[in-house]
Write a protein that binds this DNA or RNA. Structure first.
Lengths: 221, 221
DNA sequence: ACCTGAACACCGTTCAAGT
DNA sequence: ACCTGAACACCGTTCAAGT
């Protein structure tokens, strides 16, 4: 009473909004109930009335990101490939925007409606590409696995590195330490090119490889 | 004095041995300094004389796994593709054998000699495949990114799920909850095939996609 | 019905003290 | 030189108490 705190009536949506806001404004610090509670003007333990535990809360937040990326993919112009590309790159953007959430991505298997929407998008677009049966399921698996794990990897980098570049421009290989590279001639020969690789370059290379393979499978079917 | 504890003289190698042993025998519990100290017959804080912090210790342990997988790849018979395949699948096996270490994989950028050995193997085999220049670097990026992030994802599953299947046979999609799938016709149509996908299926699909794309790039060069 | 706040069982990490 | 153990600042989570 009296103070104009940010206290609002809590529900799952408001809490997930808060988590996403927190992960955006404080990208390098872990999400804790204490910080989340402070941001929402509520006690740290108030969340337990709405989520069973922190894992469920993290799942719900991640599900929102995946759902948003799926929506962007669905609305993208062009053919099936450009729609799946848009989904994957929007997910990368959102992962870099909310690193402390997205970095937990590898943990989670599909559960919420965002995940289902993403699965629907991928299956729909692959069907449009002409895939069916086992080949469709394999292509789905490759793309789905990529999106969860590689988005998480990108986010982990953004969270770990100080100064947190939000564009994925963090070097993939920081250094090879003091190791004498004489025993590793190929690494030595390409060391400049290797140091120039960014996390987003790795992501891009993965997307291109998986969609090239998918396109080839579709053409051959 | 007097008790036959497992106390040994500590050094980095002994500690990493202990971490790997612990992550193998207790796959579902997190690595803590207390548990590690108990296993080594030493106080929980004794590790700080040998590693700056827990992150460095985790890095060193993961580096060992990657190095072992690289060695397996190097010794594999066949052509460049089967050697890279062996590396990736051996890494998957080791990730499932040491889930609590491998699940941290996405965090880490190359630093130790295991990482360098893996980079050397990949570059060497891709060169043998006929790749050079930008195409070589792109193929390296796709494979390297895959190995770190997807191995971590596989391990996360194995750690989370009770009864911890060590063969990657955990379902990729646990369930779609209570959601009405009527709005998601493609998901609904393929629901049985989707539920049948295991974590290792996803890994296999990713390996096949990336190496298919690499082979195609090599043939076209 | 919903939120608070004390309490509990952990964590990683630091540092003075032991040997 | 290396390890111990107390101490600190956190965590997630539970639960009785408030309103």
């Amino acid at each position: 009473m009296g103070d104009s705190s940010k206290r609002v009536r809590l529900d799952q949506r408001v809490i997930v909004d808060g988590v996403l806001e927190l992960s955006r404004t404080e990208p390098t610090s872990r999400i804790t109930f204490k910080r989340l509670g402070a941001a929402l003007g509520v006690d740290a333990t108030a969340m337990y009335r709405h989520f069973r535990n922190k894992d469920e809360l993290t799942r719900a937040a991640l599900d929102r990101l995946i759902g948003a990326a799926a929506e962007a993919g669905r609305e993208a112009p062009g053919n099936w490939r450009s729609r799946i590309e848009t989904f994957l790159f929007r997910l990368a953007e959102l992962s870099l925007e909310h690193p402390s959430i997205a970095s937990e991505g590898a943990v989670i298997d599909a559960a919420g409606i965002g995940d289902i929407a993403a699965d629907e998008l991928i299956l729909e677009q692959l069907t449009e590409a002409g895939l069916a049966g086992d080949a469709l399921i394999r292509a789905y698996a490759a793309i789905s696995g990529f999106s969860l794990s590689q988005g998480a990897a990108l986010a982990q980098e953004a969270m770990t590195v100080e100064g947190a570049a939000r564009d994925g421009s963090i070097p993939w290989i920081g250094s090879y330490g003091v190791t004498n590279l004489a025993e590793y001639p190929h690494v030595y020969a390409h060391r400049d090119a290797l140091f120039a690789i960014s996390g987003m370059d790795v992501y891009r290379a993965g997307v291109a490889a998986i969609l090239d393979a998918t396109e080839r499978a579709a053409d051959g079917s």
